[in-house]
């Protein structure tokens, strides 16, 4: 008898934990599919460590057949940088939400970027604190209604949405890879993540990929509205594309800093 058709999950996915714990239509599943395909393509399953943050990202604690650690808001990055320093042959992935990465644990992102740490960071931007019920996050769009902005986000009062990749691109030394993808273009997102993993493997510097993602539960959207918000409103504010590649000439964007620091 022929073997019945089976789901085409990335090989590194842990089939026993599927269906996974994310809500229907959640973008986390699509980002983790792109990450899984990238790990498969590079053949690095045996030496990849996956770290997830607090927030809905932690629902991935048993998602992969990878050694996995879950840490506190934004601390995922320094924890994985520590693992990388102790075991440089490993490939470390720091998987966080926008709230964990840009608000509650932002200092760790800034420090890692300025040190050009060898870590691949993936931030899932769903414009809200999803796990705690959809409160305003640093990434909430102007006018967007959330649990804590029932009349829409007032930028006069709460500032403008945070641009994470732009921030990392501005401070990271040469060798960094920085990009923003979207779950609306899974193949492109997978390529960005794969380049980010290669950047770490080649020892060039930090890799930072933001993924525009969906949270239908807190957005209270049906499938059509979910795609519209992601592809029209979010993509208009958060441009998708590569911001830094390790091959670029740094002079155009960055002041050259001598390796031994400024002269006294």
């Amino acid at each position: 008898m022929a073997i019945a058709a089976q789901p085409q999950m990335p090989r590194v996915w842990r089939a026993e934990s599927k269906p996974h714990k994310f809500c229907p239509g959640c973008g986390h599943g699509i980002v983790l599919k792109a990450l899984g395909e990238a790990v498969d393509a590079l053949g690095i399953q045996e030496r990849t460590i996956f770290g997830c943050d607090i927030g809905c990202s932690l629902l991935s604690w048993d998602f992969f057949n990878l050694d996995t650690i879950q840490t506190h808001h934004g601390r995922t990055t320094p924890v994985l940088v520590g693992i990388k320093r102790a075991r440089p042959e490993l490939v470390v992935v720091s998987y966080m939400g926008d709230g964990g990465a840009y608000a509650i644990g932002a200092q760790h992102l800034v420090s890692s970027a300025s040190r050009n740490d060898l870590v691949t960071i993936i931030v899932v931007n769903n414009t809200v604190y999803a796990m705690t019920g959809g409160q305003m996050a640093p990434t909430t769009l102007p006018g967007q209604k959330t649990e804590t902005t029932p009349y829409g986000r007032d930028v006069e009062l709460t500032g403008r949405p945070m641009l994470g990749p732009e921030l990392v691109a501005a401070i990271a030394p040469p060798g960094a890879y920085v990009a923003r993808g979207s779950v609306a273009n899974v193949v492109q997102l997978k390529n960005y993540i794969q380049k980010g993993l290669e950047n770490q493997i080649q020892g060039r510097g930090i890799a930072f990929i933001e993924a525009l993602s969906s949270c239908p539960t807190n957005w209270r959207t049906n499938a059509a509205e979910t795609w519209r918000f992601l592809e029209k409103e979010m993509s208009a504010y958060f441009p998708v594309g590569e911001l830094r590649t390790p091959e670029e000439k740094p002079a155009a964007r960055l002041r050259e800093v001598p390796a031994h620091g400024p002269k006294p």
Partner: peptide, 22 residues
């Protein structure tokens, strides 16, 4: 786009057996 890998499309000419996005 399926976040749950619940769909597999096999091409009718039988060349669909690939598990990679690209």
């Amino acid at each position: 786009v399926c976040p749950d890998a619940a769909i597999w499309i096999e091409r009718r000419n039988g060349q669909g057996r690939t598990d990679a996005l690209t």
